[in-house]
Design a protein around this nucleic acid. Structure first.
Lengths: 137, 137
DNA sequence: CAGGATCCCCCAAGATACTG
DNA sequence: CAGTATCTTGGGGGATCCTG
């Protein structure tokens, strides 16, 4: 029962297992959706707007999260359709580590930026080219 | 100075910032490298083998992590070159949330698998074709 | 409003080969 | 051993149009 999704990394340690889970719930959008949902249930377009995600990716991400039992979908058969998404108990349990990660992110963004600037300045040895090596167009 | 790397998602909330950090240290390999390094310093090939990562990705990942001030690189100019990698204090601070995430992953992998199986079984209604929609043998 | 279907681009990431 | 350089591909992910 090998998972075809996980590259095939047969690590001897637990990294393999972690890697599997990470490849499922560890991607950017999933993390952000969980994070956002940790504040409470929310509608589709609400999530879409707040996350700046395309409806396609949101749709896909939500379906995967629902499939993995992390998010629950509740649709109201009203005339203008309304669908709410909320964390399941399992999703709630992910909330803690995700929140911690989010907090760390907010707390250390500037540290990272500083480190980057420092690193870039250091490796800037004699590169007198006529431009940007990181096309910021 | 906008970061060209971050899609351009102009979210009104803090999600934008978190998203930035997540896109830096939140990817699969970075997370795994940090996780692995949280046990102590390690050599290049040691990491490579244990994570089942290609040398290219490991090299790239490590350089980014070093650039972001999360990992410190120490090279010994010996005849068979030896390079050790270890977490910086900043990296150590990431250790806690990463560890928490890793623990969650290990604790809930089977829950996720169960949820998946259940979901797939449920949405398997009236699909009497001979084809596999998900090539999982 | 929620989201499926399509088209398409581009880069993340693996494989391979070479070097100091 | 510890990388770097190069080539190639899969699929992540955006844009757009359409429907219930």
């Amino acid at each position: 029962m090998g998972d075809p999704k996980v590259t095939k990394a047969r690590s001897p340690c637990e990294c393999g297992r972690i890697s599997e889970v990470l490849s499922r719930v560890g991607d950017r959008w999933s993390t952000l959706v969980i994070y956002r949902l940790s504040d409470g249930r929310m509608r589709f377009n609400e999530l879409k707007r707040q996350l700046g995600i395309s409806q396609r990716m949101l749709s896909l991400t939500l379906r995967e999260l629902e499939r993995d039992g992390l998010v629950r979908r509740e649709a109201f058969p009203t005339v203008p359709p309304r669908v709410d998404y909320e964390l399941t108990p399992l999703g709630e349990s992910l909330r803690v580590p995700i929140r911690a990660l989010g907090k760390w992110a907010l707390d250390n963004l500037d540290h990272i930026d500083a480190a980057r600037a420092s690193y870039d300045a250091g490796s800037d040895r004699r590169d007198g080219g006529a431009g940007e090596e990181r096309g910021a167009a």
